[in-house]
Design a protein around this nucleic acid. Structure first.
Lengths: 336, 336
DNA sequence: TTGTATGCGTTATCAC
DNA sequence: GTGATAACGCATACAA
């Protein structure tokens, strides 16, 4: 059995409250007694019961990080960044994976509603549903969204400016003399995907290129989907000369399909992928990518959340970060 | 503020204990009252405070998964498998990343010692230190190790049989007529690495090949280390014709270095890598790998842990799983 | 500076 | 079947 405050109090021959104060570095305890208490605690390897502590103090120093997809290296990087920042502030994180299932999201949400965590960060995923909104209201808005939109602009969020990112990508491809640029994104009823499309359209317009709706493709975000979409495309009427693939796993599959089909990158098709991480960097040829500001996304989201928690700041804040276009071989025209 | 048992009791005009029984599906509460209570709870979106519940019941239905490295896709797969199994059993997981730092491991261990979780699974990492041993003793051995060894064979564990895996890999390479097979593994004072070396030695002996200590290389498990070790090797006295790389990230770097050096796989060097996942599968040419039984590692570790927790089973168990050799292009000799 | 008393929200052990 | 009541381990307001 674990040793408790009461045990220490008995051993040190003081009151429990004194022990509590000593252990928590609170004022109002004599130097002598404090040292004695700390010594005893250490000797007996005392660990405060966090459940009891949380119950009494209404604070657990834990936050939930709820991610829609664990397969994405970019998301993992964001988590690592959050964890690093949290560690520095004395918080621990609980990592939860919803696998894009709404019911799991709701179940993890109860971590917050049942006071097991002081706040929650949501990474990615579809449009925010009603349960999240409700929870946010009832839980003093101790929620931060990363790369996720809500219909009502209500949540404190840290977002990647996909529109601007895609715009840069198109611009670059146009400079490289590619004319028929395909966009591979996600479901069109997802607001974030609409944002990408809007960046794509704007860039085409500003470059004087015609928009061809047939060059916009919506797929799931996995490798197979990326693979399949290419097969579909080369069977189609309009054959692009360049691809902008806006998610990591799709990018992987797309590149595979191109190579498997006997085509060459960038000679037959230029490719701009998404995410600058170990996965995309392993691909041959070296891939031009939109680099997601993963480090900053994580750091900022945690900072926002701690503000919400500690300052009871309930005014919502939004930070928008622009991805960086990292140009490598896969998008360099051989004719330039 | 969140609604509590007491509130519901008041609304339903019954005692708190009755509400508790009703909500927990315990016997001893009338059908009528039970329905009434459940209705009120639902209407008010009641969520039991898990801290209080855990404190009173001495059970949180949460387990900690403490991993040494989040960068490894194989480890992520193990976690996903654990999470899936846990979900089915009504457990949630807390995912912790130690980054191979002993102090972080110790701090996360306090999740267990402070009763925030019912048990813990450790994935990977160096030899088990004294703090883990101590914790295991004081916490009724509610600890399971995955791919991790302890000096004293004391912990319930699920292990990959690296020795057997490497043995198969050597055997295969020998069949393909490779003669100078290099082994790239981790630090030699790690027991797991010694196991790999032992499989390597046994296979060489059984194949009638000479052992050359200069063909065994110890590196860190990251990409750069894999890259560097190849540079070092081709500067060396003994040039191998095949590599067995026993960790994912090292494998990535090694392959990169080979290709960067202008060499061809498998013509100049055959390669057997580690881990059958998205990362290794993206590599060109298709990589022969030792496929880690990630799914089973996760599932079994959770089952073991639940047994330890619920059955108070303190007899230690060990399960050993053999990796599967998946043969692809990178290890096929052009002369066969 | 220190001790006493109370409460945090639940579960569990008694009575009735 | 139901209701008091005492834990669970800690924090804190207040009294001393």
């Amino acid at each position: 059995m674990q040793i408790t405050l009461k045990d220490i109090a008995r051993m040190a021959d003081v009151a429990e409250s004194t022990v509590s104060r000593a252990l928590n570095d609170k004022p109002g305890v004599g130097r002598e007694t404090k040292l004695k208490i700390l010594k005893i605690a250490k000797e007996n390897n005392y660990r405060p019961n966090q459940l009891a502590r949380g119950l009494a103090a209404k604070k657990t120093n834990m936050i939930a990080v709820i991610m829609a997809e664990m397969d994405s290296p970019g998301n993992i990087e964001i988590v690592k960044s959050i964890e690093k920042a949290a560690d520095e502030k004395g918080y621990q994180i609980i990592l939860c994976n919803t696998n894009n299932q709404e019911d799991k999201e709701e179940s993890y949400l109860s971590l917050l509603e049942s006071n097991q965590v002081d706040g929650a960060i949501f990474i990615g995923g579809k449009l925010v549903g009603s349960h999240l909104l409700r929870a946010s209201f009832s839980q003093d808005n101790r929620i931060v969204l990363v790369n996720r939109l809500a219909e009502e602009n209500f949540f404190t969020s840290v977002l990647t400016d996909y529109s601007q990112g895609i715009y840069q990508a198109v611009e670059h491809l146009v400079e490289e003399n590619f004319k028929k640029i395909a966009l591979v994104c996600g479901s069109r009823d997802d607001l974030i995907e609409e944002e990408k499309i809007s960046g794509y359209k704007n860039a085409l317009r500003d470059s004087g290129l015609d928009l061809n709706q047939e060059l916009i493709f919506s797929t799931a975000n996995d490798r197979q989907a990326g693979y399949n979409v290419f097969l579909e495309i080369i069977e189609g009427d309009v054959i692009p000369d360049a691809f902008i693939s806006t998610r990591e796993l799709t990018t992987i599959g797309l590149v595979e399909a191109i190579k498997m089909g006997g085509y060459f990158i960038p000679d037959d098709f230029a490719v701009v992928g998404y995410g600058d991480n170990i996965l995309t960097s392993v691909i041959d040829p070296p891939l031009t990518v939109l680099s997601e500001p993963v480090e900053e996304l994580g750091k900022s989201s945690l900072e926002f959340l701690l503000k919400l928690i500690n300052d009871n700041l309930d005014s919502q804040q939004i930070k928008v970060l622009t991805p960086e276009l990292i140009i490598r071989e896969s998008s360099i025209s051989k004719y330039n």
